[in-house]
Design a protein around this nucleic acid. Structure first.
Lengths: 392, 392
DNA sequence: GTGAAAGCGCTAACAG
DNA sequence: CTGTTAGCGCTTTCAC
């Protein structure tokens, strides 16, 4: 096959000499000769000339306007086809004083499946309205977010959908004043009042921890990353609320909300499990942290109840499935954000709107019911067998 | 916190009255008054007027050119800041006769983690060169791919990176002739000779199956989806080659390369497992199909050796980890594609280049060694215990 | 039915 | 150091 593939490729039309770009500045080297573009794209004027009509007539045909004799129209169409004419959307936007029909997506990182799912949904909803979609990643760096937003504004996007990095974003206010539509999704945007769609992450964590408390757990660990991310801090707040409401004193040794990375989370979990008084259940504030906890449990040979967030891909197929999965639902977030954008673009005025979605819960595995007797049960007491369960 | 969030949002600067867009056509309603744009963005002319200088001087300052008196320069800068001026990249592109500094990514679906990882890598490499990135999904529909490509060309992207739908793409040839850089990644592009970076999928499958044969398997099933996708058909070819080379007659009952979807793949696998003469190992040509096979094994209470593709997220954490994972490596594919684009944009001429990467192999679980005696071993004979393994 | 002229927001030569 | 004149590729008046 290796061979076949090579063949197919190399017997195809020979390469036409490469791009007409040269030098790091990508300057077009366009040599005019006789009034028609040498290389580079033909213009509407070229088409008009070839068809022997005026610019305006050519324009009418290309835009499907009425009032052109059929014969003239087809002459123009032939010329356009022969020349490989493609209308220049940039010039069109400029001349028509219309908007660019493009929307920018400012996100942390496209390679995160949660973000990718959200982005895909936004794109699909916008594509249905012929809006082009440009994305720019900021890697949770506020400064990069600012630069990326600026770049998109300079390209005159009609709207910005933002999954924001932490930090102030009031630099967007002037753009909003100048008519830019901004919608915050998954995380609120600080310093500007814009349409927002988020999930109640505090409640999500609170209910998750509550479920574990109801199952009899009292020693519940909480793991998160060292980050100012709104979603993460909300989840840790939810943990504390749930414990407080249940009248359980939080053991500081069980709360590590500032792990540097996933590897540290795993080590921290291992240490907790090896301690005299290990937790019997865990809240992991982020997908990767949850998987780190699972690895630590695997290493220690124990199975604790576990609440994780946004474990998008088949949590029930994990060796130790989490007992509770909280989903923000990237698809519904993306869909809601897209529809807010469209409404604003359609002329909706009025104050910033806020949608707070309820978190979604899944239980790939039933919680281990911990008998309410005694309070210093060990991790080993809560052990369960990973192979005991079976999925539908 | 629910409360706190509301507060923070609603006490922020009050919403300024919405976008300046109205009606479904998104036409700007821009009322001029006294020569300065009422709403809509200020132009360089506005800045120049406010600073009391000519257009060209303002332009010089905005572009950081030399030869402007410091006092003049700062007056212009102040004016620009006060007005909230942002250069119009579209107009700039048009006037300067330079390229748009944008690259289009034409992909099947952003929500696929493999594609998302590839896209993220392309974006990152291009962003480092200040190239804006636009993506467009085609959902493996050739007609949509054509439309999306056209839309990107009309926006005058400098290059197109394509993870192609099946089918002819020779409609790109005129664009290439007009200077568009096109790079195919992960899957070759039919009908045009362009720079290409793919993985040798035939070899990937062949080696994967070969490994299972070497472990003693003879009844090896192959599962794939009903699709013309190059990657999938290559993998099925690889399966047949491996079997042929080993002199094993392929049992047609074990090859189902045209499942309609993942659910059907699961059912097919279940049927195979329940048959008198079940397979002892499986090749699943795609991530989702692999997980379907795992579910079927789980249902049947057996663990067969399994080769899967592109199981990006922690295959070792699956209940039944595949014995072999073949990775195309979305990151290296994306990086290679990006660098090919950059080289062409930097003026590299010459024939289409082809990079064929070797597949990457991982073994989350050692293969079950099947004794070479007898040939009608049942699935039950190859059973293993999922809990016996432990990961590093 | 068709076309000429003006201009979108900017840069690119040239002059002063 | 600064300004003037063209024009990018297209749409938009408004006239023929």
């Amino acid at each position: 096959m290796r061979l076949r593939f090579r063949q197919r490729c190399l017997t195809a039309l020979s390469f036409t000499g490469g791009s007409d770009l040269a030098g790091p500045a990508f300057r077009r080297c366009r040599l005019r000769s006789g009034g028609v573009s040498r290389r580079g794209r033909p213009t509407l004027a070229d088409v008009a000339a070839k068809a022997g009509v005026s610019l305006k007539t050519a324009s009418r045909v290309i835009n499907g306007e009425y009032g052109v004799a059929p014969a003239t129209a087809s002459r123009v169409q032939d010329a356009a086809r022969d020349l490989g004419f493609r209308p220049n959307h940039l010039a069109r936007t400029l001349a028509s004083r219309r908007t660019s029909a493009a929307v920018g997506l400012v996100i942390p990182d496209l390679s995160d499946p949660f973000i990718a799912a959200l982005a895909a949904e936004v794109e699909q909803n916008l594509a249905a309205r012929d809006l082009q979609f440009m994305s720019a990643s900021h890697g949770d760096d506020p400064e990069r977010q600012r630069r990326q937003s600026r770049a998109l504004v300079e390209r005159r996007v009609d709207a910005l959908v933002v999954v924001s990095a932490p930090g102030d974003a009031s630099y967007l206010q002037p753009e909003i004043d100048h008519g830019l539509v901004v919608v915050a999704v998954d995380r609120p945007l600080d310093g500007v009042a814009v349409d927002t769609v988020v999930v109640d992450n505090e409640k999500a964590a609170r209910l998750g921890v509550d479920g574990m408390i109801k199952a009899g757990h009292r020693r519940i660990a909480a793991l998160s990353l060292d980050s100012e991310l709104w979603t993460l801090t909300e989840r840790i707040r939810g943990y504390h609320h749930a414990m407080e409401q249940a009248g359980i004193a939080v053991d500081p040794a069980l709360v590590r909300s500032h792990c540097a990375d996933v590897a540290e989370a795993r080590a921290v979990m291992a240490t907790m499990l090896a301690a005299d008084d290990p937790p019997t259940a865990v809240l992991a504030a982020k997908g990767g942290v949850g998987r780190a906890a699972i690895r630590a449990m695997l290493d220690a040979g124990v199975v604790l109840d576990l609440t994780v967030f946004d474990e998008v891909a088949d949590p029930d197929l994990l060796v130790i499935p989490p007992s509770t999965v909280v989903e923000s639902g990237p698809v519904r977030l993306g869909a809601a954000a897209a529809s807010m954008v469209l409404e604003r673009l359609d002329g909706l005025h009025g104050p910033a709107r806020e949608i707070v979605l309820a978190p979604l819960f899944e239980h790939p595995r039933p919680l281990t019911q911990v008998p309410p007797t005694g309070s210093d049960r060990t991790a080993r007491g809560a052990r369960a067998n990973a192979t005991a369960r079976r999925t539908a």
